[in-house]
Amino acid sequence: MEMRRFLQQFALFALACGLLYPLVVVAFSIFLPLPYVKNVKHPLGGNGHMHTRLLELKGHGPVDVLFLGSSHTYRGFDPRIWEQRGYSSFNLGSSSQSPVQTELLVKECLDQLQPRLVVYEVYGVLGNLDGVESALDLIANRKVDLACLEMVLRVGNMLAFNSMIYGATRQLLGVDRNFNELRSIPPDLYIPGGYVEHDESATDTSTTARTSAGGPKAFQWHAFQRTLALFKERGILAVLVEAPTTRNFHQELHATPSEVDQWFRAQPNFLDMNGVTGLADSTHFYDRHHLRQQGVILFNNALIDSLAGRDLLPSPHVDARRTNLGRSIMHRMLVNVR
């Protein structure tokens, strides 16, 4: 009898907690300044123009190439350069994007974008990311739905969970409906196609490379494999690309090669773009692992050449030389490079 009573009371208490907890989260988030509520964040717009990128994605048509990955992606793959070389593309990179977020985004946009080639930016600790930063980015800038809930449950982090409750409430109340993200948030400038160009004056050398010698987190690794399997199933060619970083950063990153890193290197469609593009640390990077625009131009052209050399590029269907836009961009780039 006592045990039954205990279990009944415990179940009732758990139910009450389950029902009231979201209300407490929302109440704290509304009535206290958000910095006071440690485990709720709502980075509307975020660091990488995710809001604008996802808005643009909504009306976007099919592309030849889709870019996926972290800030190295949305700051490193410039659709204008690819357009110059005859390829339409969309950059779906986001801050600290981890495989669970990539999977969510890919599932959502694959039918719409119908890419023929996916450039998936990878690096050794990809499988060890906790996925929280990117989860917050998506919660704040994308609709909160079942796919979002699934992602948050996979990430299994209280900050992501609370932020989802808060994000869902804001969505329900339409608070963010009229949010209009500025395209230019110095030193960043959003370029149509998902790319973010960085003003070249700022420099930061403080970032240290995240490293991990251990195996990947199971949920991230499974998400990564599922995403690759999806590409295969759809007949989409996916290349894994390690974006260039400064020499020291690259050395730190590979000081203790992770299992994932070794796996990448064993793949036939893996390209490490470090040391092959003639990039100089002092002139082509604005911090230890992000490229300046001159660097982006060199890197993208080198990548396109490299892919073409390996016969991994689909045949181009955009003749960029005919477009005025393309001409002017190409001209500006060449001037910058010189």
Partner: peptide, 9 residues
């Protein structure tokens, strides 16, 4: 709720 809102993650 305080645990959920303020715990180290």
């Amino acid at each position: 709720s305080l645990i959920g809102l303020f715990m180290a993650t």
